[in-house]
Amino acid sequence: MTASRARPLRVGPHALLVEVPGGEEAQALHAELLRRRAARTLPAVTEIVPAARTVLLDGLADPQALAADIVHWDVPPLTAADGEPVVLPVRYDGADLAEVAALWGVAADEVAAIHSGLEFRVAFCGFAPGFGYLTGLPAHLHVPRRATPRTAVPAGAVGLAGPYTGVYPRSSPGGWQLIGRTDAVLWDAEREPAALLSPGTRVRFEVTP
């Protein structure tokens, strides 16, 4: 990403929303912000919140100073991270498996191999504690949400919506297309860290019987 493509937007007296052209750039900028915070070259900030094509910085003493600076940053593109991804075992028996297979133009029993063959990355979190929006689905595998959302989706349900896949950390209503379920605990407030997935985490799914 060239630095000039970052557009800082004022968000009240103490925050800045930095808009970039797309998801890849948002993840790259988020990674750069974390590097600079770790190197103590970033001004003190309470929250760094990546999202679909923005990163929010909240709790800044002088957002305008950072806004003036950030447009000159040289942000390297996202590279494959070192180390092993988090692996989530999944039983691919979701209620929408057949529909997803039809949308993908494959047989129902091929969905597991395709989904578990991809590597994902947590672009951002939201909706509920520990819910990650995972990118990595090629465009031809993007599916719409269900026309009628379910009133209850079980904890651990693995779903698809638009460019994202994700795992419901707890039982809740939901409109994503469900393809399977994992026993992994996505969120446990008593655990350190509480969230299994956080922005930047690499994720793979593994077929389990």
């Binding site: 509920a128 989706v153 409109g175």
Partner: peptide, 11 residues
């Protein structure tokens, strides 16, 4: 408004 995986039915 939260653009989340649920719906307006979630209450």
């Amino acid at each position: 408004g939260t653009d989340g995986p649920a719906s307006e039915a979630e209450g």
